[in-house]
């Protein structure tokens, strides 16, 4: 068990060590799916959901199954995450076709989202217990959503500006990300 309080875990994952802006986790959706605010919000929510499930499964795996074989950690985590996303996809399809339609394309993308796997690994490395893991997952998910939404709303406004030709697309996105990361440094030490 880690000594950190739930508050500091939550706040650290969401703001101070923001998954995307400080740890570079979940960059694929950040660069790819962050052109529209609505999409960014949905992607963020889908991520929170899967993050929480992942945290639960990683905890179960660590506590009951991998105790004697920690060297199988990477392989079991990734298999569990891949199947989890598949199951979530199937369940949502059955239960709420509307939601499925909205989330549909994002769910498979989540499997290769480093944030999900990163969460499982970090949670293990820092030996969080059940509740700490959950808090970590929600904090990380909200942090991802925050970064995605900020990026998306900035990109939406910049769409109409006369961006210099060389900066169109990735160049500008990376500079915005850098600026956001600079701004988030203001939260350093806030633990």
């Amino acid at each position: 068990m880690s000594d950190q309080t739930l508050f500091s875990i939550f706040f650290s994952a969401m703001i101070v060590n923001n998954f995307t802006l400080a740890l570079f986790l979940g960059l694929c959706p950040f660069m790819g799916v962050s052109a529209r605010v609505e999409t960014a919000i949905r992607m963020g929510l889908a991520n929170i959901f899967v993050l929480v499930l992942t945290s639960l499964s990683a905890w179960v795996l660590n506590t009951y199954i991998l105790v004697n074989a920690p060297y199988l950690r990477i392989i079991s985590f990734i298999i569990v995450i891949a199947s989890l996303v598949q199951i979530v996809e199937m369940v949502i399809k059955k239960v709420s076709p509307v939601l499925f339609k909205q989330l549909g394309i994002y769910l498979p993308l989540i499997t290769t989202n480093c944030a999900i796997f990163g969460l499982a690994i970090f949670q293990t490395n820092r030996s969080y217990d059940f509740l700490q893991g959950l808090t970590f997952a929600v904090g990380a998910g909200l942090g991802l959503t925050l970064a995605l939404v900020l990026m998306a709303s900035i990109r939406e406004t910049s769409e109409l500006s006369d961006i210099p030709a060389i900066a169109k697309g990735t160049g500008l996105t990376l500079i915005i990300a850098g600026s956001l990361s600079l701004a988030f440094m203001g939260f350093a030490g806030l633990l």
């Binding site: 880690s2 000594d3 950190q4 500091s8 650290s12 060590n17 350093a188 633990l191």
Partner: peptide, 10 residues
């Protein structure tokens, strides 16, 4: 040994 949060992380 002991760990606590510093400026960035533990």
């Amino acid at each position: 040994s002991r760990g606590e949060s510093g400026f960035q992380d533990v």
